[in-house]
Design a protein around this nucleic acid. Structure first.
Lengths: 204, 204, 204, 204
DNA sequence: AATGAATGAGGATTCATTCAT
DNA sequence: GATGAATGAATCCTCATTCAT
């Protein structure tokens, strides 16, 4: 608030304003002036906290990825059964998406950046996703999860939630709690070893 | 070529040039002047075929969707078994994606447009996807496919291919034919009725 | 004139407008917008002829140097006596300066650019100044001109005219034709071998 | 240093920092923020000592002129012979220039300001240059110096040193002590009455 | 006196679009 | 139909200056 102090929270204010505009207008669809207005600061102020537009976007990207991962892993307990852990993650992810529409829509923007940025983004993400890697590894070892690479398992299991939640937020589809349960089961089927379920019920 | 000729294909030339640039530089990453150069025409010429930049993008979007659908449905035969039809579609989709990198990357750009455009895009797509709807409907009726809405089934089954193929094209993952078979099986598991597989092999 | 033609002379129009503003407001004292207004074109038009502000300035610099050299060497005749040749050059230089106030003032701006630019400027200038080098060389060989390097001779002889003409143009001093003759004689004395004049009249 | 102290010398600190930046980056090539950093003070502090950027530059200009004059007149003794006085001044000027590169380069920046500023600059300078005026006056009266106005004599005699020293500092030319002696003699020839030297040696 | 966060006008540059040829 | 020079609004970003602390 006071102009002489470091204004620790102004950075956050700018971040949220960016997320809002990013979600509404897309990646290049808003100007710094608009952003300044939305954040309630002068245009020049933004450059006190970020070197330029690109850095702002890049740092926002990193933070959003971290937010997603943090939310997904909330309450994660490696002692639980594989499927239970997975369900929890899916549930977390879904609710984070629909409770944070702007972040969800913003994230989508980042999926289509130049390859080199995507690469560094990806490697950053995998660090935080270690528990997921562990889950997959353990699942593969115990024949509960198909013998596919982590990337592929992610694409088949978690990725659809991002797509679905965006559609839900746009009002294109309706997903209630019961439906969500079915979706989670369905996405589990995609990565689970079907042979392992033969003749017996889910091991959960 | 000669200015006196009607140049019926110039529209197509502009389209391909746009796809190329779209894939390489993203949605707002290229200018009309660049596009003109890539297409080998004058900047003004583009405005003879498209009202403005937006219209060009919009029409390109429509065409790309149609191309995807056409490719996916290639050789579609409703007489085959559900799973066979599905496999064929997945296979078609995958190969179209990796054989047309520019179109695949371009398509990704379109997934994140303002809501109203997405809506019209979606309704346009569903028209061409009638065979897919039929497939799903028939699958649900015969208990071979889970009782989920078309949108959700799409998200669980076909959507991951777009994500995966982009990663494959970027060199982030490697998918060979054998892996593809496994992925197709996995995505089938996502939408297939697991009860139907109990105690017997795939009904294909 | 016609928008579709290369507009060969628009470049010249922009050049003269730049010289005018450069003389009046100094190097960084005018904006592209001002320049556009002065030249009677749109701001964007300037960028059709010059990559950016720097290139415009750099090219203008080169042309001005050439203009100065061309004017100074006008009517140069190596067959004449050394002093006669020198007088002619001084006279040419002086009149060019006071007849082209804007160019004279602009030139002054260029004398104070970053070292590396000055270096390339200098080497460019020396190419055109070959006749002056020849004059100095011949003068040194015949003991009519002091045994000093070309650079030093230039500083002592021609350089003062630029300074004086600027003062004259600003109305700070008055130089009529008679005074000019004295100045030329004085500047000649600076570079001429004084021993050579002992006991006899000018060898002109 | 401590905010409670009167910091009488802070003005000087800012001055030197300005000279440094002026020499390196030119007139409009540095910002107040840069200056503050170079001076080791906060940006706002500069405004406690100078009304605005222009005033800072203007006052610096005045001081630099005074420094030049002071250095040039160092050890000046009106009792000495005219030529001796002149030599001393040239020598002083030269050494001041090459020992204070930043000041020399800065000065050059000031020579090309808007006319009205130049005018006031000039009148200020002439006040301190009274000894030079006296020298010239005495020289003219005794027929040792050409009958030209003070301005013209300055241009022919002292001005070249500024130009030469800048070239020397940039490494474009090399001037050692012996060469300097020749240059001083040459510049003396420019303003000295050549007839006065006929048949006798320098009256020094 | 000193600070430095905040401002916002003004700078250079880009680019979709127009239109005379 | 085709051109591409010209436009000028809109962009990002800089920076002199202010002022609460």
């Amino acid at each position: 608030m006071s102009p002489a102090k470091p204004s620790i929270d102004k950075r956050e204010i700018i971040f949220s304003a960016t997320i809002k505009l990013l979600a509404k207008y897309g990646f290049h669809g808003f100007s710094i002036k608009q952003l300044a207005e939305e954040a309630g600061v002068a245009a020049g102020t933004i450059y006190l906290y970020f070197k330029d537009r690109d850095e702002l976007i890049r740092e926002l990207n990193t933070q959003i990825i971290d937010d997603f991962i943090k939310a997904t892993l909330d309450g994660h307990d490696p002692e639980q059964s594989i499927k239970h852990q997975y369900r929890r993650m899916c549930c977390n992810l879904w609710h984070f998406c629909i409770e944070n529409p702007c972040i969800t829509h913003s994230k989508a923007q980042f999926d289509h950046l130049p390859p080199d940025i995507l690469r560094s983004q990806r490697s950053h993400a995998w660090v935080g996703l270690q528990p997921v890697k562990n889950l997959f590894e353990q699942g593969r070892n115990t024949k509960q999860i198909k013998n596919l690479s982590d990337d592929i398992l992610i694409s088949l299991s978690f990725e659809p939630y991002l797509f679905l939640s965006r559609q839900h937020l746009l009002g294109l589809i309706q997903v209630n709690d019961e439906t969500l349960t079915h979706i989670i089961d369905a996405s589990w089927d995609a990565i689970a070893c079907s042979t392992a379920t033969h003749g017996k019920h889910n091991q959960e």
